[in-house]
Design a protein around this nucleic acid. Structure first.
Lengths: 238, 238
DNA sequence: CGTACTATTGATAGATATCAACGCTGGTGG
DNA sequence: CCACCAGCGTTGATATCTATCAATAGTACG
């Protein structure tokens, strides 16, 4: 299992040996989290930066009526709370979805990383890609039907997981609940269930247990109007 | 008319005299744009960074069916295309909404700004706040009814404009078309029109011409579940 | 073997989109 | 100066999508 962070940051530009050594050091002590465990609570002050090594996590916001909107997923290789390094208080919470292995990076270490121009640029790039994903999610929820939304989401996750070597070309492990998918897509659980069945019936997507099968990725991309440009991956990784 | 960029960046932390001098120099040559004029096209390579001095602009993405989703607004003091400084190609377009006065900042100048730690941090902070706004938009579109959405949007713009001295406590200039609002909120024009009428009838919001009146901001905030924390403004500015 | 969460199904209600039409306004050209 | 035109706001009628409510069945887990 190579260094996922290195692998991800090199999706932007190659790093020097010294940079990679530092990254190897960064990911040393990792911690296990159970599923549905909060990592950062809304309103908390600056904290460590978190890096997901294994499992799925998410950023979410709670609404007054108790419902929640998930605003990002984190898959292995993703940095979660980089912004908490700068902002005074978190405006959202972060929690695991599945069991996770996570590195908690100390502010000092971050500072050391930011002393290296190539790393700084790579981290910056990475956070800009996160922004791009967020914008695409906004488009997804704002403009697409429930069926298109789900197709698009699964295409995105598929590609993101492939980029870190965690997906086969015809499927991947996806340990989310239908209710969590609903919270992500701004849909009700019932409707998510029906749309998933419809996709299954069309042979586009089979989500059962913690496993997704995508028999024909191209067809799913077409339905979801999925254009991977916003992920800013290098050619080889797509 | 003070330097809006300075004013905005000092919303994070005070800047030194030298930093402010540099910012004063940065905003020197500005350019006028008409309404509905594209500034950056999706797919273009790295370009200048843009700073809005006057007017409203937006970031948007086009969909295959020709409709568009607006994913951010830019008001005076906002930096538009900071990411194009790093990413290879833009995954979205930027265009004016109203007539605008805009500064085009050369990459060299940006580099000079980034040589100053306090400015770097302030710019970073600013982009993190943009992210936070984007997340809140996602919540807005994902979870709130059309009426709540519009209320929330107008509360946000109200506060953002107040932070740069461009709004009175009971209203502001808002030169957007109902169709542009619809493209922002993931709603149809017709529905936006009806919701606006309903809000007007409730005495919460009067949008006519290019002017918005908000007789009772507190009541509007309540309807929109608007909690300004995500804007990360300093106390004084709220 | 309960208990609790997850997936599923049916029936119904509500919100929002779509289609079509019309008036108003500001600008433009004759 | 007036007539025309395009874009915007508005209205009504209807269709579609998605939420909500309620109930049941499967599944994991102590």
């Amino acid at each position: 299992l190579a260094n996922l962070l290195t692998r991800k940051l090199e999706g932007f530009a190659p790093l020097s040996g010294a940079d990679k050594d530092l990254l190897d050091e960064v990911i040393l002590p990792s911690r296990s989290f159970g599923p549905r465990e909060d990592i950062i609570h809304e309103g908390e002050g600056p904290a460590k930066v978190h890096l997901v090594l294994e499992g799925f996590a998410c950023r979410y916001k709670l609404l007054p009526d108790g419902s929640r909107q998930i605003v990002s997923y984190f898959v292995p290789g993703d940095l979660c709370s980089f912004n908490s390094f700068i902002l005074r208080t978190a405006d959202h919470s972060i929690s695991t979805l599945s069991p996770c292995r996570i590195v908690e990076i100390e502010p000092d270490t971050i500072t050391r990383m930011l002393e290296r121009p190539a790393l700084t640029r790579a981290l910056w790039w990475s956070s800009l890609v996160d922004d791009a994903v967020l914008r695409e999610w906004l488009v997804n929820i704002g403009k697409r039907s429930a069926e298109e939304r789900l197709a698009h989401l699964l295409c995105e996750i598929h590609l993101r997981l492939k980029a870190v070597g965690l997906a086969k070309s015809d499927g991947f492990e996806f340990p989310l609940t239908q209710s969590e998918i609903a919270d992500t897509m701004g849909l009700s659980v019932v409707h998510v269930n029906r749309v998933l069945q419809s996709l299954r019936a069309q042979g586009l997507l089979d989500l059962r247990g913690r496993q997704v099968a995508i028999p024909d990725p191209a067809r799913l991309c077409q339905l979801g109007q999925f254009n991977p440009g916003y992920l800013h991956l290098r050619e080889g990784t797509v």
